[in-house]
Computed example of a mutant assay.
Amino acid sequence: VYSANMLLHSTAVDRVYLAQNTESLVFNDSFETFALNSSISYQGYCDDFGPMNMSCIIDFIRLLEAKLKESQDRKIIFSADDGKRPLTNAVFLLGAYMILKLEKTSAAVSESFRWLHTDQVEPYRDATYARPDFGLELIDCWRGLEKGMQRGWVRCGGSDFMWGEVDVDEYRHYDNPANGDLQEVVPGKFVALKGPVATVDDRDFHDDARGARSFSPAFYAEILHGMGVSTVVRLNEARYDCRAFTD
């Protein structure tokens, strides 16, 4: 079912349907509806809205698996909030599930969503308010996830704590803006983090008037040393003494 105000369509995941704006429909007992919980969301910096990170992907896979297990005799309706961006994120998460859990290729996932109208979803953009000059498509994100799985960087649920080389608890901890805003993008090779700033009395962090937290170079230096990082490349303005990383 697709109209200007409503979407309800089957997906390549058995018994799972994708829906949007279906409040006017009444489903019988053979259906169960769910939506994303607060732990599965993207915290934008500016006008960016995704894609979801590994923590959200893992939480979504666990959530969908639980729904499928709990309701083995029912069809599952995954309901996205109104708008292109929530639908784009919902489609991305379903595709991530297909790649990691069902081991489908990114090409097969993209083909399975060919029924989507191009004006229903939106390319991801950079974290600014300026007019974007590059759009990151869903297929780009799925290809990256597929490559990570092929290289063994991530795989579905080897344990509750390790998904391939992703330490779920550590990832979730440092991803939090209150704990470092840091991600290990390529395991053992490449770490990305928020630019450090010099703090009063060399404190670990500083919270500005808006509540945004910045961290000292010494705070990051200890973490990066523990991760085996040997080279730091600064991409933004210098707001700290680089000797914290060299002394």
Rank of each mutant, 00 (worst) to 15 (best):
residue 233 V to T: 11
residue 29 D to I: 09
residue 214 S to G: 04
residue 175 D to K: 14
residue 148 G to V: 04
residue 88 T to S: 06
residue 131 R to K: 12
residue 129 Y to S: 14
residue 55 S to I: 08
residue 186 V to P: 04
residue 30 S to F: 12
residue 126 D to H: 09
residue 158 G to V: 10
residue 226 G to H: 01
residue 213 R to W: 01
residue 204 D to F: 03
residue 220 Y to I: 08
residue 132 P to I: 07
residue 77 I to W: 05
residue 167 D to H: 06
residue 48 D to H: 02
residue 70 E to V: 03
residue 206 H to D: 13
residue 69 K to W: 12
residue 2 Y to L: 11
residue 92 F to V: 09
residue 195 G to C: 12
residue 117 H to T: 07
residue 236 N to K: 11
residue 243 R to G: 09
residue 194 K to H: 07
residue 145 L to A: 02
residue 17 Y to E: 00
residue 130 A to S: 14
residue 122 E to D: 09
residue 70 E to A: 13
residue 91 V to L: 06
residue 7 L to T: 00
residue 243 R to T: 13
residue 86 P to Y: 04
residue 155 R to W: 12
residue 21 N to K: 10
residue 161 F to C: 14
residue 9 H to D: 00
residue 43 Q to P: 07
residue 184 E to V: 13
residue 59 D to H: 14
residue 22 T to Q: 02
residue 77 I to N: 02
residue 247 D to P: 14
residue 237 E to W: 04
residue 88 T to K: 03
residue 80 A to S: 11
residue 57 I to E: 00
residue 18 L to Y: 02
residue 106 S to P: 06
residue 130 A to R: 13
residue 212 A to G: 09
residue 194 K to Q: 12
residue 231 T to S: 11
residue 129 Y to Q: 15
residue 199 T to E: 06
residue 178 A to R: 15
residue 58 I to C: 06
residue 105 T to E: 05
residue 97 Y to H: 07
residue 210 R to P: 00
residue 124 Y to W: 07
residue 116 L to H: 07
residue 19 A to L: 03
residue 157 G to Y: 12
residue 60 F to Q: 02
residue 240 Y to F: 10
residue 126 D to R: 08
residue 149 M to P: 02
residue 92 F to K: 08
residue 75 K to L: 11
residue 66 A to F: 10
residue 4 A to D: 13
residue 210 R to C: 08
residue 38 S to E: 08
residue 34 F to Q: 00
residue 103 E to P: 02
residue 60 F to R: 05
residue 98 M to W: 00
residue 167 D to Y: 00
residue 170 E to P: 01
residue 61 I to P: 02
residue 148 G to E: 05
residue 5 N to R: 13
residue 185 V to A: 12
residue 237 E to H: 11
residue 118 T to Q: 13
residue 62 R to N: 13
residue 225 H to T: 15
residue 28 N to L: 03
residue 142 W to N: 01
residue 103 E to A: 10
residue 232 V to N: 03
residue 174 Y to S: 05
residue 161 F to G: 12
residue 215 F to V: 05
residue 222 E to P: 01
residue 220 Y to E: 08
residue 159 S to D: 10
residue 96 A to N: 01
residue 186 V to E: 07
residue 46 C to L: 14
residue 122 E to Y: 08
residue 145 L to S: 02
residue 2 Y to C: 12
residue 142 W to R: 08
residue 224 L to F: 03
residue 150 Q to D: 14
residue 99 I to K: 05
residue 160 D to T: 09
residue 69 K to E: 15
residue 171 Y to I: 03
residue 194 K to G: 06
residue 108 A to E: 12
residue 229 V to P: 08
residue 170 E to F: 04
residue 77 I to Y: 06
residue 208 D to M: 08
residue 246 T to P: 04
residue 67 K to W: 12
residue 84 K to N: 10
residue 223 I to P: 02
residue 60 F to P: 01
residue 113 F to L: 07
residue 175 D to N: 15
residue 195 G to F: 00
residue 216 S to I: 00
residue 30 S to E: 12
residue 30 S to R: 14
residue 239 R to K: 14
residue 166 V to L: 06
residue 228 G to D: 09
residue 92 F to R: 10
